[in-house]
Simulated scan of single mutants.
Amino acid sequence: MRKLSGIFLVGLCLGAAGAVVVTAGHSTAASSQPIAVTELGTTTSAAPTPAPAPKTETKTQTEPPGSPAKAAPAAPARVDAAVLDKLVRDGEVSAVVFDRQQGAAIDSVHADRGYTSASLVKLLIGLSVLEQGGPVADVQRMLSRSDDDLASRFWSSYGGTSIVTRWVRKLGLTGTRPPSDPGRWGDTRITAPDVVRIYQYLLERKSNAALTALRDATERGSDGFRQYFGIPDAAGGRPWAVKQGWSCCGPTRMLHTSGLVGEDNRYIVVVLTEHPVKVDYATASRRVTEIVSTLLG
C-alpha cells in the first residue's frame, strides 16, 4: 500500500482532484468515504520555478498539432439524457464517451454545458511544462497526487492564463476559457468535448511522462481526498487512466471524472457534474460512479 498524504482542511475555497491510472491488477476497492477537503486552485507565495526557454516542438507529418482529431459522425447516444439527469437529481451533468476504434462519440449528453475545471486544468498546466522542457518529476507529482502547490508554481512560472489560451488555439478548443481571476487556475472553464480533445492529444503525441504519472497515481490526492470515484470505481477489471476534479465553497460544488478506459485506451470517458452544496462529497461521489457505470453498461 502506498503511503497516503495527510489531510489538509482548507476553508472556503475552490479546488480540484488528482489523477489515477491503473491496470486490471490495480486495487479498486473503496476505502473510507471521501473527505470533504478542497484544493485551492490559486497561486501561492512560494518562489516560482524559473521557466526555461521554450523548445521547438516537433510537428507530425500527418497533421499539425493544433488540428482537431478527425472522426466519423457520432453514433446515436446509447444513454438517454433523462437517465443521467435523474442520477444527479437537483444538479447538472454532462458526459461524452468517445470510441477510438470507431472514431466517434457513442454517447454525448448535454455536451455544450460549461463547468469550472477544478484540477482538470492541470492537464494543460502539465503539458505546458513538459513541452517547454520543465522538471518532469515535479510534473508527474503534480498529476499523480494532484499537488496544488506545484500547480500554482507552474501556473505562475509558465504564463498563467496564457497557458489556457495557448492550448485553446493549439487544440481548437471551443468551450474552454481562462479564469476571470488570473490567480485562480481552478476557475478555468471547460466542456466535456474539449476534455476529450485533450486526451486525444496526449495519446497522439504519446506523452509518456504525463501518462506514466497518471498510471502511478495514488488513491488519495495530496490533500487527502479520495480520487477513485467515477471511472476507477466503475471500471471493474478494465484498465483505466483518469484525471479527477472537485471543488467546493459556493452555491454549488463540482465533481468531475475523466480519462481512458479499456484495452489500448479504447474509450475516452468524460463526466462533468455540478451539485448543490447540500449534497456531501460521499453522496456526490457515489452519483458520479453510478453515472459512469451506466455509461460503461
Rank of each mutant, 00 (worst) to 15 (best):
T42N: 06
A74D: 15
P76F: 00
T49R: 10
T49L: 09
L40R: 15
A53E: 10
A51G: 02
A81P: 01
A47E: 07
A51T: 03
V88F: 01
A82S: 14
S32P: 03
T49C: 04
D85V: 04
T58Q: 09
Q33P: 08
V37T: 15
A81N: 02
A72L: 06
Q33K: 13
A71S: 14
A81F: 00
A46M: 12
E57A: 14
Q61P: 04
V37Q: 07
T60P: 10
P65K: 08
P65H: 10
T42C: 04
S45H: 14
Q33V: 07
A53H: 05
A69R: 12
A71P: 04
A69L: 06
P68E: 06
A46C: 07
D85H: 14
G66C: 09
T58P: 02
T42W: 03
K86M: 02
P54M: 01
R78Y: 00
S31T: 12
T42E: 04
T38D: 04
P34G: 06
Q61Y: 09
K86S: 14
A82P: 03
T38I: 02
P73M: 02
T42G: 01
T42V: 08
P76A: 12
P48I: 06
T56P: 00
A71N: 13
A72Q: 13
P73Y: 08
L87G: 07
Q61V: 11
S45V: 10
P76W: 03
A82L: 03
V88T: 05
G66S: 04
D80Q: 11
Q33H: 07
A72M: 07
T58I: 05
V37H: 08
K86E: 09
E57Q: 15
T43D: 03
A53Q: 13
P48N: 05
T60G: 15
A36S: 12
L84I: 09
P34D: 02
V83K: 14
T62S: 07
L40A: 11
D80K: 14
K59N: 11
T38W: 02
L40V: 10
E63I: 13
A47W: 00
A77Q: 08
G66L: 02
A36H: 06
A47P: 01
L87I: 14
L40K: 15
E39C: 12
L87A: 10
A51K: 06
T44W: 10
K86Y: 05
R78L: 03
T62L: 10
T38P: 01
Q33G: 05
S32I: 06
L40W: 05
A46Y: 08
A72K: 14
A74M: 02
K86I: 01
